[in-house]
Amino acid sequence: MLEFERVGFSYGRQPVLTGISLTIAAGEFIAVVGPNGAGKTTLVRLALGLIRPTDGAVRLFGTDSSRFRQWSSVGYVPQRANASSALPISVDEVVRSGLAGQLRPLARVSSTQRERIEHVLEVMGLQQVRRRRITQLSGGQQQRALIARALVTTPRLLFLDEPTTGVDAEAKTALRASLEHLVNIEGIAVVYISHDPAGFAGLAQRVLEVRDGQVLPVSGSAPVSSASHPGA
């Protein structure tokens, strides 16, 4: 599903990641931890083809990420949307905007897509607030709206970048319940980037740590897949 083969990445002459090799299989839940600036977000950006590796290859569903086109199979939830805090966009519009890459110009949303929108709003507990501006919601609700947006294309692989940043304990519990549903019921593979182990404890099948340019399994975490070859 996702494969890093001896991947290296540098910002100018400053190496950030070196010789990363790992594989993520269908339905896996992987947590990635590490100190600030270690390269966690760089790892995600490489996986999504937003930046190109300086060495090695990143493959999504068997295709090099720079040539990958089946983006409906991949969902991405940024740490925080870069939209202005005054963006007058409703929750419904945020979720529907997830379909923008799939729809032809002026095409109407199909009945299947409409059903999917209703489904993700329900799973994320957002039906009651769908007409409200996203900036009116709590941090946790906003985060779930971003996840709903990423899920609307029915992805098979979901990236979550620090999803619990700035959310309260109650919202973390709600987010966790939503993730359990995604993993256990919908069988979506998840790459969960976080500082906060409480967000993925009991959900993550593997915990990887990004440190000193390497990606290493955290000792004592759940069994490391034989498909993983960190720090080559």
Binding site: L87, I89, S97, A100
Partner: peptide, 23 residues
């Protein structure tokens, strides 16, 4: 604007996510 409205909105909301969505 009418033709690319959805794509413009997705990009205004978050450009990185829009790229990942294939826009």
């Amino acid at each position: 604007t009418a033709v690319v409205y959805r794509q413009l909105l997705a990009m205004a909301f978050d450009e990185a996510s829009a790229k990942v969505a294939g826009i």
